[in-house]
Amino acid sequence: MMSRNNIKIFPGAMVCEESKLRGDITIGSGTIVHPSAVIIAEAGPIIIGDWCLIEEQVKIVHRLPFDQQSNENSQPVLIIGSNNVFEVDCIVEAPKIGNNNVFESKCFVGNKVTISNGCTIGAGCKITDEQILPENVIIFGVNCQMREGLDRPGPQTLQMETLSKMLPNYHHIKKPNMKKE
C-alpha cells in the first residue's frame, strides 16, 4: 500500500538528511526536522504546516485505527497545523492536529485522538481513548489530569532561531524542492 517516497519541502524549512521520512510528506516553510526524527505516512499523505519544531526521536505516524483500515479507496490526509512543537521521543499518531500544540517528551497520542489548537500533552502522558481535545487543554501528571489553560502556549521562536543557525553547521540539510506559492 505504501507508495514510494515523495517528499515536498518548502523553502525555509530545515529537514536534516538523517531524518527518516517515508511516504508522501509535505513540509511547510520554517519547520525544523531534527536528525533521527521519524515521519511515516503509512495510510495517506502527511502535510506539516509552517514553523513546526520536530525534535530527535520523535515518531509521527499516520496510521488508521483497525476498524477504518478496511476501505482501501480513501486516502485520508494527516494535516498538522503551524507552530506545533514535538519534543524529544514523543510518539504521535493523531489523525488531525491543529496549531500551537506542544507534545512534551515521551508522550504518546493514539490514533483515535484528534488534537485541536493550543493543547499541551505533558511529559510521559499516554492518551489513547477516542476523543477530540478541546482548545487550550493541558494534560499533565501520571494520571493524565486535564485542565483548561487560559491561552495557548507561547511559540518557541528563540529556540528555533538558534537551531536554524546551529543545525546547518553540523548536519546535511535536505534541499527545498518546492517554490513559494
Partner: peptide
C-alpha cells in the same frame, strides 16, 4: 512549568 498553571489564570 509542569501543568502550566499561572497566577494570571
Amino acid at each position: 512549568q509542569f501543568c502550566r498553571w499561572s497566577s494570571r489564570d
